[in-house]
Computed example of a mutant assay.
Amino acid sequence: MGAIPDWLLRHQVLIEPLTGEGPFGPEYGEQTLVRCFVDAKRRLVRDAEGAEVISETTIFMPLDTTCPAGSRVVIGDRASTVITAARRDGGGLPTPDHLEVVLQ
């Protein structure tokens, strides 16, 4: 199957990828408009440190998207922070390869 099919990418979000920490807090890269699938469902997840946090939204986007934990994502008029990002790569198996991003 390869990449996630285009017909599943029904939504668009703006991503500002986290590039590092500066003297005044987090620094972000250039905003990028990305086609994706948005699943607005509340669920309990673990962050990078292992703490349990509530996620309001999960986004599924193309595998080559740059969106590390801590990045800022804008959906409509709401900005959120990425809790975790997981690459879902089937390694050649017939699965929809994608990046799964969990938002606060």
Rank of each mutant, 00 (worst) to 15 (best):
residue 68 P to Q: 06
residue 57 T to S: 08
residue 92 G to C: 06
residue 77 D to A: 15
residue 78 R to F: 10
residue 49 E to D: 15
residue 68 P to N: 06
residue 63 L to E: 03
residue 2 G to M: 05
residue 11 H to W: 05
residue 42 R to W: 10
residue 15 I to Q: 02
residue 9 L to T: 01
residue 2 G to W: 06
residue 67 C to P: 06
residue 14 L to D: 15
residue 48 A to H: 05
residue 75 I to P: 08
residue 41 K to Y: 13
residue 63 L to N: 01
residue 87 R to A: 07
residue 38 V to E: 11
residue 100 E to Y: 00
residue 26 P to H: 09
residue 31 Q to L: 13
residue 100 E to M: 04
residue 47 D to G: 03
residue 80 S to V: 09
residue 90 G to M: 01
residue 71 S to A: 06
residue 30 E to Q: 13
residue 33 L to I: 10
residue 81 T to S: 07
residue 94 P to L: 10
residue 84 T to H: 03
residue 66 T to N: 14
residue 37 F to N: 14
residue 47 D to W: 05
residue 9 L to S: 02
residue 58 T to V: 12
residue 40 A to D: 08
residue 21 E to Q: 12
residue 60 F to G: 14
residue 74 V to R: 13
residue 22 G to E: 00
residue 42 R to P: 09
residue 85 A to L: 03
residue 1 M to W: 11
residue 13 V to T: 06
residue 27 E to V: 11
residue 9 L to W: 00
residue 61 M to K: 00
residue 83 I to L: 00
residue 97 D to Y: 01
residue 21 E to I: 10
residue 19 T to I: 14
residue 22 G to W: 00
residue 70 G to L: 00
residue 84 T to G: 03
residue 57 T to Q: 10
residue 101 V to P: 00
residue 80 S to N: 13
residue 40 A to E: 11
residue 103 L to I: 04
residue 93 L to T: 12
residue 59 I to T: 07
residue 54 I to T: 15
residue 68 P to E: 06
residue 81 T to N: 04
residue 79 A to S: 07
residue 101 V to C: 00
residue 39 D to C: 04
residue 37 F to E: 14
residue 55 S to C: 02
residue 24 F to E: 15
residue 67 C to S: 07
residue 31 Q to G: 11
residue 80 S to R: 14
residue 28 Y to V: 03
residue 46 R to W: 10
residue 53 V to G: 06
residue 66 T to C: 11
residue 54 I to W: 15
residue 47 D to A: 04
residue 68 P to C: 06
residue 11 H to V: 01
residue 27 E to F: 07
residue 23 P to E: 12
residue 5 P to C: 04
residue 103 L to Y: 01
residue 35 R to T: 12
residue 17 P to K: 03
residue 65 T to D: 04
residue 28 Y to M: 03
residue 6 D to Y: 09
residue 1 M to S: 14
residue 46 R to H: 14
residue 58 T to M: 08
residue 87 R to F: 01
residue 82 V to W: 04
residue 37 F to V: 09
residue 63 L to C: 01
residue 12 Q to L: 07
residue 74 V to M: 12
